[in-house]
Amino acid sequence: MNDQADNDSGTGGWDAISASLAQLYPGQEPRHAAPVRPAFLGGGDPLDGISVYHSTHGLPHWHYVTYGLSELYGKESEDPDHSGYGLELTFRLLALPGETEAPSWAFDFLQNLARYVFRTGNVFEDGHWMTANGPIALDTPTSICSMAFAGDPQLPAIETVNGRVEFLQVVGLTLEEERAATRWAPRKLLDALLPHMPLWITDLGRASLLDLPDVGAAVAAGMARDGSSTGHIFTDVLEVTELVRGGAGASLEVTLGARQVTDLLALLPLRLPFGNALALAGSDWQLVFEPAAIDDAVLEGQTLTVFMRPVTLAAFGSTLAPFAGDYHLAGLAQVAWSVKKTLIRDADGVVVQTIG
């Protein structure tokens, strides 16, 4: 298919994706799910469609591919090198014995991921991760509650008349694997899982692969060698208050949620000793931890930067706890730490878990 034919048809981007899939699945007619009214006509689903193929590579599975994060028709974006967001999502789901139809929940799952991209402008990349805040398949008992992203191992990037498109695969993870991904590196974790997870096929019925000795050992060795690649974490609970006190009392109070304290205690020893900073971002404030030879705390605008010596980092880890209360560090006497309970709510706003 040449560029001129793509331009004449008006569906050059769409045709390029379909041609790439036809090479991988010659002669197979996919099931295609399209919204009744796509987003460009005022509908609620951002993707124009999702195709799914049955694959016998690795393990029998369903291979979903989106249409709509790239420019499927005419060129509208100002970026000459990339088509739309420059990607389409793929997802490989283990096919159950005797299963003849691809599960429909995955269509909604991918539409929701695309909706996040369209709403926020945050573009997924190889090596990213994201929590699902619950099972990725709502009506199926599963421990898969998170995801990582990697280039689809069988679909290389393509050049279309509207620019480059990469196929980014969504890989389902357990919460334990998500924690390992943030405390090491998502892409390195996926490589460690690959021998037990061919083509990164998501299996809703599996347990955490970290329980396997070789995977657990590889992750532990990787964290000790590399530290963590996570430089930013986000929180709903973060506030910095300037205190009016006399004497040698604290002049600043930092309020954190118990859930984020757990993350901090895990990540700081995997960042600062390796010479890397760690930032905690809230809706109004940012808290940045930096390795330093002298302890200090500097407030500039809405950002508090905390400089820590190794000994103070060790004291922080042994003093602060993910439980509601007030905490103080001798090395950083100017900062008081207040930990509040974290309330986890479901989609209806009902508290389903309390941390701290």
Score class of each variant (00 low, 15 high):
residue 178 E to V: 07
residue 158 I to L: 12
residue 127 G to M: 02
residue 154 Q to S: 08
residue 136 I to C: 00
residue 176 E to K: 13
residue 131 T to I: 10
residue 142 T to P: 01
residue 155 L to R: 09
residue 195 P to D: 04
residue 152 D to V: 07
residue 163 G to V: 11
residue 126 D to A: 12
residue 166 E to N: 13
residue 186 P to C: 05
residue 135 P to G: 01
residue 145 C to R: 14
residue 116 Y to M: 10
residue 126 D to S: 13
residue 185 A to T: 10
residue 186 P to A: 05
residue 130 M to Q: 13
residue 189 L to V: 02
residue 195 P to C: 09
residue 167 F to S: 08
residue 155 L to C: 05
residue 135 P to E: 00
residue 158 I to Y: 07
residue 169 Q to A: 11
residue 125 E to Y: 09
residue 122 N to A: 14
residue 116 Y to H: 14
residue 153 P to T: 00
residue 117 V to R: 07
residue 167 F to R: 03
residue 166 E to P: 04
residue 172 G to S: 03
residue 150 A to F: 06
residue 153 P to S: 02
residue 155 L to E: 01
residue 167 F to W: 12
residue 161 V to D: 05
residue 119 R to K: 15
residue 126 D to W: 04
residue 166 E to A: 13
residue 197 M to N: 13
residue 142 T to S: 15
residue 132 A to M: 14
residue 138 L to M: 08
residue 146 S to I: 03
residue 160 T to S: 15
residue 158 I to H: 07
residue 184 W to C: 09
residue 170 V to P: 07
residue 140 T to W: 04
residue 115 R to M: 11
residue 184 W to Y: 12
residue 145 C to L: 10
residue 118 F to N: 08
residue 197 M to K: 06
residue 170 V to N: 09
residue 123 V to E: 00
residue 166 E to D: 14
residue 175 L to F: 12
residue 183 R to C: 15
residue 158 I to N: 01
residue 156 P to G: 06
residue 158 I to Q: 14
residue 169 Q to L: 08
residue 130 M to R: 11
residue 197 M to T: 04
residue 159 E to I: 03
residue 167 F to N: 06
residue 125 E to L: 13
residue 190 L to C: 02
residue 185 A to D: 15
residue 147 M to I: 01
residue 115 R to S: 13
residue 173 L to I: 09
residue 131 T to S: 14
residue 187 R to A: 12
